[in-house]
Amino acid sequence: MAVKVNVEHVDFWYGDLHALKDLTFDVPEKSITALIGPSGCGKTTFLKLMNRMNDFIPGTRATGKLIYHDRNIISYDVDVVELRMKIGMVFQKPNPFPKSVYENVIYGPKRHGVKRKADLDLLVEKSLRQASLWDEAKDILNRSAMTLSGGQQQRLCIARCLAMEPDVLLMDEPTSALDPTSTQFIEDLLVRLKEDYTILIVTHNMQQAARISEKTAFFLLGEVIEFGDTREIFLNAKNPTTERYISGRFG
């Protein structure tokens, strides 16, 4: 598998708090990489470093290299707006805009120069289809997104993200606020999406990581304790801590 993002000796601080410590691993292209580990161990911090969403928190600092398309994401001369067009993000809690379903999907593209109604219509259909929401939403495109169910809202957020035609998808516990049926739906969706996208997913659900991901990174207290093939990690983890976490004995 070709490598999409090289993570090389990445460190991150919130003020004095050393949140990420010397991370080094490679994220493979067109596959799902699961980030697992107890709460507060830096998974989301790492995810948000990938599209520089941590920039909004004052007093943060990062060193090391996050190489994406020959450029270091962490360096200050990267245009973060451009970066986020290529590296999309889906959040833990569905956060559709309080606008219509249609407006939600075209929010990004419209602001990047797609103006013709026909193009936008096509884009809406394509994105909603990709997110398996088209059949449910095609008749209520003008209804407010807030009237959708939680699972539909999350798929809308995925569609909104896909409409930007990104390269990498960052998912921060996308199913933790959803019921098992919606979770199943989104997992199937992710498995289909990895044909075209590189996906990083933070999850607290071990089965989910085992079911859908190719690679797994086990985070503990800001360090990556173990990184490797998901099958390998779940069947015979090299590190006893990893094994104990996966089998549910702590965390």
């Binding site: 599209n51 969403m53 909004f56 707006v81 451009e82 970066l83 986020r84 067009m85 290529k86 999309g88 993000m89 959040f91 809690k93 956060n95 559709p96 805009f97 309080p98 606008k99 929010y107 990004g108 602001r111 990047h112 957020c157 909104r160 993200c161 930007m164």
Partner: peptide
């Protein structure tokens, strides 16, 4: 809500576009 602003920024939208697209309407 911060989540709406984050959603907007995460789509590669500039600050001013976020203000006119989400912040002011809300």
């Amino acid at each position: 809500p911060l989540s709406l602003k984050e959603a907007s920024y995460a789509l590669g939208v500039s600050k001013w576009q976020t203000i006119t697209g989400v912040v002011l309407p809300f």
